[in-house]
Design a binder for these strands. Structure first.
Length: 279
DNA sequence: CTGCGGTCCTGAAGGC
DNA sequence: TGCCTTCAGGACCGCA
């Protein structure tokens, strides 16, 4: 599912594709997934593409912000030739490599006939047009404000298990289920450990693992496992799934000590860990 | 404040 | 082969 590394990979790609382009019109195929008036963006130039946590925002001239949340199954594709948009690679979980297809919910058409496609099989994602950037106190994992001190202060007093706590986006934003599982393996901390039971050393290990694993995800351009919809805007796959530590590796040997990776359900989410090295 | 369960949604996978 | 049920889950909301 799209988490920080996937959204950051998309951002870097779209920044190269879109900055300077002028929107012709937005074609909304699923109305419930577009918040705001799509007509407002006609003629606006894209000046930047930014990200905070899992939220991607196209910055437009005249203080307009077109934000995109991919939620579980959102997919962004970009074609220079929007009149004949056929992608080379298989588009996961869609019926056709030609855009738009049955999963396409919104299309942003540009003056030069290039086009951006927002596909979303399960219709949980959305696009929102706003005249101000979303204000949030939450801190992105890659931002300078995400320090060890901030991390300790925001999580160390909670009675919740560390794994679901890291999924909450209101204090730290960007972590989803894949990287949550893998970073706790990296930190050698068991996912069910209560946050307020963690030692200073363990908190520091989780902090360091968070930055390391998220950066590793970006290095491999995100995770495109077979049950995921995520691809880059040019339809290429990411390769982090070839580097999973524990995620979806239940029954397989731990990369550190060969113990068998286990799967449990924790706060309603699939949770993977090594019973030997994660304490 | 916390924490739980329901909701949204659809394709894939499993059972018989 | 085919129909039916179950499952996956990020964010949000209502309720105890």
């Amino acid at each position: 599912m799209p988490e920080l590394p996937e959204v950051e990979t998309i951002r870097r790609s779209l920044r190269d594709d879109l900055v300077g382009k002028v929107i012709d019109h937005v074609e909304v195929l699923e109305f419930k997934q577009f918040k705001g008036d799509p007509k407002q963006v006609a003629g606006k130039k894209i000046t930047d593409v930014i990200r905070k946590g899992k939220m991607l925002t196209l910055v437009l001239e005249d203080s307009l912000f077109l934000s995109i949340h991919l939620m579980l199954t959102g997919q962004i594709l970009f074609a220079e030739d929007g009149k004949n948009a056929i992608f080379k690679n298989i588009i996961p979980h869609t019926n056709s490599n030609k855009m738009p297809n049955t999963s396409t919910r919104i299309v942003v058409h540009f003056k030069d006939t290039s086009a951006l496609y927002f596909n979303d099989q399960r219709k949980f994602g959305w696009m929102k047009l706003s005249d101000k950037i979303e204000e949030t106190k939450s801190v992105d994992v890659l931002s300078p404000e995400f320090t060890l001190e901030y991390f300790k202060k925001s999580i160390s007093s909670s009675k919740k298990p560390i794994k679901p706590l890291l999924l909450e986006q209101d204090k730290i934003t960007g972590i989803g289920n894949i990287y949550d599982n893998d970073l706790l393996w990296e930190a050698k901390v068991h996912p069910t450990r209560k946050a307020n039971s963690l030692s200073n050393e363990e908190l520091e290990a989780i902090y360091n693992a968070t930055v390391k694993i998220i950066q590793e995800g970006i290095k491999y351009k995100g995770s495109s496992a077979k049950d995921e919809m995520y691809v880059l805007p040019n339809s290429e796959k990411g390769s982090y799934q070839e580097h999973f530590k524990v995620y979806h590796r239940n029954g397989q040997p731990c990369l550190r000590d060969k113990a068998t990776i286990e799967r449990i359900e924790l706060a309603g989410r699939g949770t993977f860990f090594c019973p030997k090295c994660q304490k």
